Amino acid sequence: MNRRFDPSRRDRIIDVTIEAIAEVGVAGLSARKVATRADVPLGSMTYHFTDMDELLREAFTRFADRVARRFEERMGSASTVAEAKAAVARTIHEDVFDTPASLVLTHELYTLAARVPAYRTITRDWMRRSRSALERHFSPATARQLDALVEGLTIHRALDTEPHDVEVTLDAIEKICQDGAAQG
């Protein structure tokens, strides 16, 4: 029996899982659906992953890593506090939920993390990385507040039917930074 050598199979399965979650959600996912979408034998699923839970953790970890890396790059490109504030606003208005799939994936992860403690490791690492990127320019307390602002405003912006004004976002960032400076 010939076995097809496919060194990228595991990665393809993870990537297809991310796409499938965005389309059908975690509840609509099965090993069979993922295997079909990835064009791999169903047995490959158990060869590469002990169960669907491991596959989901790998997929959400990859997704969170991509988003965190993009945020780290955005914040790393700022060389002044003013540029960092503008970078936070651009993140909210351009990056975090840049596609409907990103919105769905984020909320699917949040839902799992709320229900299953093992997924909180993924969200905690994502938050830690976000705050660390913010702390390049802001105090830890201000970074925590800005991180919450990013999360909250991106959700509002993604789900609201009215457009969000970047100037309002910049004003909120400024107020958080002023309050943080007054407390620090």
Rank of each mutant, 00 (worst) to 15 (best):
M1H: 07
R4H: 05
F5R: 15
R10E: 06
D11T: 15
I13G: 01
V16S: 10
V16T: 12
T17A: 05
I21N: 04
E23D: 12
V24A: 09
V26P: 06
L29W: 05
S30I: 05
A31D: 03
R32H: 06
K33M: 01
T36M: 05
L42H: 14
Y47F: 14
H48C: 02
F49E: 01
T50C: 08
D53L: 13
L56K: 13
D65S: 13
D65G: 12
V67A: 08
R69P: 00
R70D: 00
E72R: 15
E72N: 08
S77P: 00
T80M: 08
A82H: 04
E83V: 08
A84W: 03
A84V: 07
A87D: 03
P100S: 03
A101P: 01
L109G: 06
A114K: 12
A114S: 11
R120K: 10
T123C: 08
T123F: 05
R124A: 13
M127W: 07
M127F: 04
A133Y: 00
E135F: 04
S139K: 14
A143Q: 07
R144A: 09
D147Y: 10
A148Q: 12
A148P: 00
L149C: 13
G152A: 14
L153P: 01
I155N: 07
H156Y: 11
R157H: 06
T161L: 12
P163M: 09
H164L: 13
D165Q: 11
E167P: 00
V168C: 00
T169R: 03
L170V: 02
D171L: 13
E174M: 05
C177H: 11
G184M: 09
G184A: 15
